[in-house]
Design a protein around this nucleic acid. Sequence first.
DNA 1: TGATTATAATTAGCCGGCTAACTATGTCAA
DNA 2: TTGACATAGTTAGCCGGCTAATTATAATCA
Lengths: 181, 181
Amino acid sequence: MLQLRDLPTPEILGKFARRYPDADVTAVATFLHLLRVATDLSMALDACLQQHGLLQGRWWVLLLLMREETLSAAPSQLAEKAGVSRATMTGLIDGLERDGLVRRVTDLEDGRRVTVSLTDAGQATLDEVMPDYYRRIRQLMSGLDEAGREQLQSMLKIVHAGSPALLGRDGPADQPENHEE
Amino acid sequence: MLQLRDLPTPEILGKFARRYPDADVTAVATFLHLLRVATDLSMALDACLQQHGLLQGRWWVLLLLMREETLSAAPSQLAEKAGVSRATMTGLIDGLERDGLVRRVTDLEDGRRVTVSLTDAGQATLDEVMPDYYRRIRQLMSGLDEAGREQLQSMLKIVHAGSPALLGRDGPADQPENHEE
DNA sequence: TGATTATAATTAGCCGGCTAACTATGTCAA
DNA sequence: TTGACATAGTTAGCCGGCTAATTATAATCA
């Protein structure tokens, strides 16, 4: 997601700000810092899961199934909840089924529908991974007390609320520029 | 990075915590929240850059070149600073060269070395993208004042410092000796 | 009824990461 | 001088996302 290792130094940001007067140095620094930390955490999570033979995508599928009372769900539901396309979910389920962690059952009444269920092996895998995962997250966050966590989350919400600003068709139209396309 | 759209509700976290007593509910919630927000920002950034015909990887290359006094650098330097493999950097440069945004020049003294330079067209592209980017970041962060940004960054540092906890070979039982920054 | 449309899942093929192998060039010491 | 090694970049091929097209089944209505 944010691969960049060499975040701009204050000097570089200042230099760029002279060429581009719209630059808000502390805003950019904070934004990049947030992406940098999150990227490192995500990569570290991947590494942790790989020690148990899982990858993030597959792990989420198992978790989503375990949340269900019936330990099962339709591929389309899983895709939506996991935030991936149905095609990607098909691939994830293929892999999990090959490893025996989930099972596919075609619906008897509606032949188009398929139900994916967590197998005993799948549950066992989660029972191995989750305690390790939870211990690591506990440790990761041990530097922040409850109040700190609350505060971090409330600041994240503020930033999150601004994210549509990044999306608008032509930017916060300060001064309209002429580009085609 | 964190595709998951359906973050666990407090009820689900509680249910999992009963099965896995090591779970620290607020730690997990904060961790996931951080990844969720960062992922949305990253995707929004991608969408913004795509409006100018760029992708994150290529954009970073142009920025790294613009930082240099000579507007040029070696592919290996760029790869390291951008945090991608040399092979990936070769591909990025291929695309940028094809679009005329950078230029490759083989070193006269050492035939193995190549210098990548920003072309006028590359600079012009940046001059189009950067003001838009900066305006959007300014808007994104407008909900936090300077003190808030400082505080957010200091909390990010605390979390970042704990990230080695996610990596340790066999859970946080053994303390990783990584210590930097 | 039977043609048309809608829905669920899958398949096909693209793209941008990666690692590992390869090519070309330079360096150094026997 | 030349053979072993080192270095810079590229190429080859894998993998997991994606979109778009396809297959199979169900639902609708003239």
